[in-house]
Design a protein around this nucleic acid. Structure first.
Lengths: 182, 182
DNA sequence: ATTGTGAGTAAGTGTTACTTACCCTATTGG
DNA sequence: CCAATAGGGTAAGTAACACTTACTCACAAT
C-alpha cells in the first residue's frame, strides 16, 4: 500500500503496473495477490485508510461547533484542507474510483454514505431550529456544498495548482449561506 | 464512434475491448487505428461530438435571456437537461475522461475551457451591473454552480436514478442566488 | 499505363493483470 | 521432540488485451 501510494503521486492508476508496484515494494508480483483481491482492491484499501482519518478528523471538529452553519463551515474548510494536504487520497476519491461500478459496492463507499448521512442530519436540524430556510432541500444543499468543494480541488489535483483554502472556503460559504445575488 | 457509443451505454470504458468495438461496427480491429490514435482518442472524439451540440444549445438559450441571473439559471437548467438526456455523454465527461492527464490536452477539453470563459464573462457582467454582490469571486461562484450541477447528475448516471430536473435546478438556483441561511 | 491513396484486412507482438504450483520457516499441539 | 499446519514468499507461467505490421484491393488522377 505504501509503494502503491508513492506511485500514485507520480502517475495515474491505470499506468501503474503490478510489476512496478512489486518492484517498489521489493516483493514479487504474486505476493500482492495474497493480500489484495486485485489491483482495484488495493486502490480501494488505500482510499479506505485515508478516508478513515479524514472522517475522524472532521467529526471531531464538528463536535466543537454549535450552530448548523458553523458546522457546515467546518465541513467546507476541513474538506478543502484534507484534500489539499493529501493529494493521493484526493486523486483516488475524486478521479480514479468513480468510473468503476464495483467501487459503489466497496467498504470505502460505505464510509462516504455514512458521512453523507451525518451531514444530512446537520442540515435537517438547521432547518428545524430555523437557522436554515424551511424550504431548503437537504439533499440539494449538500450536493451544492459537496460539488463546490470537490470542484474547487480538481484544478489543484489535476494541474498541481496551489489552492488558497481560506479564500475558497469562505467564498463557498458566503455563496451557499447568503447567496450571490445583491 | 456509433458502435462505441452503443457499448458505452452498457458498460464502462475500460471493460469495452477493441475486439468488441470492431465486431459491433462490423469492421476489423486494425481499421479502428486508421481513424483513431488509440482507444482514448476514440473516447475523446465521441465526447467532442456530444459536447459541441451541448454547447451550441446552451449558447443559443443564453442569448434569449437578459439578466445575468436568468442566464445562469438557463445554464443550470440546460446543463441538467442535457446530462439527463444524454447519459453516455455525461458518463464520459463526468466519470471517464478525468483520470487521464492527456484529456486536458485534448480538443474536447479546449471546449470546456471556452465554455468556462463564456460563463465567467456573464458573472463578471453581473457584478458590474450590480446584479451580483460586488465581493463575489467569479471563479468560486462558477465552481459552486458547476460542482452542484455535476454532483446532482452523478447519482443518476451511476445508479440510473431518475432526476427531477425542475426541482433540482430551482433548488440549486435558490441556494446559489439567495443563500440557504434564513 | 502508371502511380498514389484511402479503405480494409489477417496475423501477428509485447505487455499486463492475474494464477498456479511450489518453497521455506516458524509456531503449535500431541 | 517431532509432525502437522499455516503463513510469508517466490518463479514461471497464462489468457486477454491494446496496438502494429505488412499486405490487398479498388479506383481516381496524372
Amino acid at each position: 500500500m505504501k509503494a502503491f501510494s508513492l506511485l500514485m503521486s507520480e502517475k495515474d492508476f491505470h499506468s501503474i503496473t503490478t510489476a512496478e508496484i512489486a518492484k517498489t515494494a521489493e516483493v514479487t508480483e504474486g505476493l500482492i495477490y495474497k493480500y489484495f483481491k486485485d489491483k482495484k482492491d488495493l486502490l480501494y484499501q488505500v482510499l479506505n485508510e485515508h478516508f478513515f482519518e479524514f472522517q475522524a478528523k472532521i467529526e471531531n471538529r464538528i463536535a466543537n461547533e454549535k450552530t448548523c452553519v458553523e458546522q457546515l463551515e467546518v465541513i467546507i474548510f476541513s474538506s478543502l484542507e484534507s484534500y489539499a494536504a493529501n493529494r493521493i487520497f484526493s486523486k483516488i476519491l475524486l478521479l480514479e474510483v468513480r468510473n468503476s461500478l464495483d467501487f459503489f459496492e466497496s467498504g470505502a463507499y460505505e464510509m462516504v454514505r455514512k458521512y453523507t448521512r451525518t451531514v444530512l442530519k446537520i442540515i435537517e436540524k438547521g432547518i428545524e431550529t430555523g437557522e436554515l430556510k424551511p424550504e431548503t432541500n437537504p439533499h440539494i444543499l449538500w450536493k451544492v456544498i459537496l460539488g463546490a468543494i470537490e470542484h474547487a480541488c480538481l484544478g489543484e489535483i489535476i494541474f498541481g495548482r496551489e489552492l488558497d483554502i481560506d479564500e475558497v472556503s469562505t467564498g463557498i460559504a458566503n455563496i451557499v449561506f447568503s447567496g450571490a445575488k445583491a
